[in-house]
Amino acid sequence: MKMIVDEKYCYGEETHLTVHKTSVFFPGDGFVAYDSHGQLMFRFESYGPGSRPIDEIVLMDASGKSLLTLSRKKPSLHQRWEGYFGEKKEDQEPLFTTHRSSIIGRSEVLVEVYGDADEEYHIQGSYTKRCCTFYKSSRQNSSREPVAEIKRKVDPTTHAMLGKDVFLLVVKPAFDCAFAMSLVLILDQMYGDRDVSDDGEDRHDVGTILEASAP
């Protein structure tokens, strides 16, 4: 079991979450995530300028309880983010930190998860095209194990691919769904919905790698 937020989000079977980017007042204001039974699991809401600044995101459960606070460090050309348990408090230590390894070209996103001395996590693919795979790997060997995946959602009745505002987050058994969802929020802040070139290549995040390790 890989528990970062709460063991109740580490399920014994593969979990399919339908993630929907919502627009309350402005495009891309928030996210909601539903399980395969249509039950709301996670949400994040931003009510535009003048409300909660976009450099601080709170991932909530269905009832509105704060699960993780994701805070952007400023100034930071590398887009450094820190994840805190619940509502962030003064002098609270982060659970994990993330930052881009480079501010230009194909860059990696390094995530340091405190308490993990051996494991690393990588995300490979393109968030912009909603096609990423999360891998767990070990520093002791070269083995890699997929733990989650972001992919486009297909309407089961029409078999048509839905727009990028609705996509799937597939989480493997025993991996923390709340932690996986928090990484989706961070990836969206880092890469958003930048245009894909005419040849289908995403110039910004093709080959994006997310690594998670202990400091």
Rank of each mutant, 00 (worst) to 15 (best):
Phe85Lys: 03
Gly86Ala: 00
Gly86Met: 02
Gly86Ser: 01
Gly86Val: 00
Glu87Arg: 02
Glu87Gln: 00
Glu87Pro: 06
Lys89Pro: 02
Lys89Gly: 09
Glu90Val: 06
Glu90Cys: 13
Glu90Trp: 01
Asp91Ser: 09
Gln92Val: 04
Gln92Ala: 05
Gln92Thr: 00
Glu93Met: 10
Glu93Gln: 07
Glu93Asn: 05
Pro94His: 02
Pro94Phe: 01
Leu95Tyr: 00
Leu95Arg: 03
Leu95Pro: 03
Leu95Ser: 04
Leu95Asp: 04
Thr97Lys: 05
Thr97Phe: 08
Thr98Ala: 14
His99Phe: 13
Arg100Gln: 07
Arg100Ile: 08
Ser102Asp: 12
Ser102Val: 03
Ser102Cys: 13
Ser102His: 09
Ile103Lys: 09
Ile104Pro: 10
Gly105Phe: 08
Arg106Met: 15
Arg106Ser: 15
Arg106Tyr: 13
Ser107Trp: 02
Ser107Glu: 09
Ser107Lys: 03
Ser107Arg: 06
Ser107Asn: 12
Ser107Asp: 11
Glu108Arg: 06
Val109Ala: 05
Leu110Glu: 10
Leu110Met: 11
Leu110Trp: 01
Val111Ala: 15
Val111Gln: 08
Val111Cys: 15
Val111Pro: 09
Glu112Lys: 06
Glu112His: 12
Glu112Cys: 15
Val113Arg: 00
Val113Cys: 12
Tyr114Gly: 15
Tyr114Gln: 14
Asp116Lys: 02
Ala117Ile: 12
Ala117Trp: 08
Asp118Gln: 10
Asp118His: 10
Asp118Asn: 14
Glu119Cys: 15
Tyr121Arg: 01
Tyr121Asn: 00
Tyr121Val: 07
His122Asp: 13
Ile123Thr: 00
Ile123Glu: 04
Ile123Asn: 02
Gly125Asp: 01
Gly125Cys: 04
Ser126Leu: 09
Ser126Val: 06
Ser126Ile: 04
Tyr127Asp: 08
Tyr127Val: 07
Tyr127Ile: 04
Tyr127Ser: 07
Tyr127Phe: 12
Thr128Phe: 07
Lys129Tyr: 10
Arg130Phe: 08
Arg130Asp: 05
Arg130His: 05
Arg130Met: 06
Arg130Glu: 04
Arg130Val: 07
Cys131Thr: 12
Cys132Asp: 05
Cys132Tyr: 01
Cys132Ser: 03
Thr133Arg: 01
Thr133Phe: 03
Thr133Asn: 03
Thr133His: 01
Phe134Val: 10
Tyr135Met: 08
Lys136Leu: 11
Lys136Ile: 07
Ser137Asp: 08
Ser137Arg: 01
Ser137Gly: 11
Ser138Gln: 05
Arg139Lys: 14
Arg139Ala: 15
Gln140Asp: 14
Gln140Ile: 14
Gln140Gly: 14
Gln140Ala: 15
Ser142Glu: 11
Ser143Tyr: 04
Ser143Ile: 06
Ser143Met: 15
Ser143Phe: 12
Arg144Asn: 06
Arg144Ser: 09
Arg144Lys: 07
Arg144Tyr: 00
Glu145Phe: 06
Glu145Met: 02
Pro146Gln: 00
Pro146Asn: 01
